[in-house]
Nucleic acid binder design. Structure first.
Lengths: 144, 144
DNA sequence: ACTAATTAGTTGCATCATTCAACTATTGGA
DNA sequence: TCCAATAGTTGAATGATGCAACTAATTAGT
C-alpha cells in the first residue's frame, strides 16, 4: 500500500540515483551532466544558466570552470555587453553531451519497458502532464 | 514538442528543486530530509541505511552525526551484535519528520491539482507503475 | 580455546557543490 | 564625467561524498 506521495518521492529519488550511478558513473558529476545537457539546447550567459539550474552565479561560475577545464565548453564575451560571458559547448563537449543523453535515454527506456504495454501510452502521457504541472508550479514560486 | 525522456528528466529535476527550496528550505539539508523520512518507517543500522540511500557507510555515519547533533536521532548498540549501531528517531525527530512529510505532501498535491481532474486518476496510477518499474530496474543493477 | 578472517562503524583526507559576501570590470544614466 | 547598477569571479565556510586506514566485535578454522 503506497500513497501517491510515496510514489513520487520514491520514483524521483531512484531516478536521481540512476543519474548518479549509471549515467554519470564516476566520469562526470551530476551537476556537470545537467549543465552539458542544458547547453545542448543553446548558448547562454552565466546568469541565465544559474537561474535555470537555480543556483547562485558563483556556483555556476565554478561549474563552468570544471567543464572548461575538461575542454567541454568555452567562454566568450558577449559582443553587445562586455560584462556578459556566453558559455557554449565545444566539439568534444557536444560529443560528451550526446553520450550522456544516450545513457539517460537508455536508463529511462529500461524503466518504461517494465511497464505493461497496455499502460505504457498512458504513463507517457501522464509524465508529460506532470512535467507541465510542475513547470507551472515552479513558475509561480517564491518561498522562503 | 517534448519526448518522454525530457519529460522524465525535467519532472524529476524540478521535484528535486522543490525538495531543496520548499521543503528543506534552509533548515534541513536534502540528505537529512531523506534520512528522517526513512527512519519514520523504522529503526535500522548504519549499513542498512547506507544501502538504502546508496551511499558509503562513512557518508551515512556523518549524516547520522548531523541528525544526532540536532537531537533528532539516537544511536544504540544492537543487543544481539555489539558491532551494529541502530539509529532511531527521538521524539523531536519524529516531529521534524512529520513536518517535512507534510511539506512534501503539500508540494506534490500542488502539482497534482494542476492536472485536469479527468486525468488525475490516470496520472496517479501511472506514478505507481513508474515507481514499481524503477524499483525492479534498480533491484537488478550492478553497473560500473 | 586461540588465532585469523570477516564485518560494522568511525575517521582522516580529498574533491565537489553550494551559499554569502566582497571584489573587479563594464555599462548606462544624471 | 562620475556614480549606480549589473555580470562575473573569487575567498571563506559548510556539507556531501568516496576511498582507505583504522578500531572493535563477531565468527570460523584449527
Amino acid at each position: 500500500m503506497t500513497s501517491v506521495f510515496e510514489d513520487v518521492i520514491a520514483f524521483c529519488r531512484m531516478f536521481s540515483s540512476f543519474e548518479r550511478e549509471e549515467i554519470c558513473c564516476g566520469t562526470v558529476t551530476p551537476s556537470q551532466c545537467v549543465l552539458l545537457q542544458t547547453l545542448t539546447e543553446g548558448e547562454w550567459d552565466v546568469s541565465t544558466l544559474a537561474a535555470q539550474s537555480r543556483v547562485t552565479k558563483g556556483a555556476m561560475t565554478r561549474l563552468v570552470d570544471g567543464l572548461e577545464a575538461r575542454g567541454w565548453v568555452k567562454r566568450e564575451k558577449a559582443k553587445d555587453d562586455g560584462r556578459r560571458v556566453v558559455v557554449a559547448l565545444t566539439a568534444s563537449g557536444k560529443k560528451e553531451a550526446a553520450r550522456l543523453a544516450r545513457l539517460t535515454e537508455q536508463s529511462i527506456a529500461t524503466i518504461l519497458e517494465r511497464i505493461p504495454k497496455t499502460e505504457r501510452e498512458q504513463v507517457i502521457r501522464s509524465l508529460h502532464l506532470l512535467r507541465q504541472a510542475a513547470e507551472q508550479t515552479r513558475a509561480q514560486l517564491d518561498c522562503c
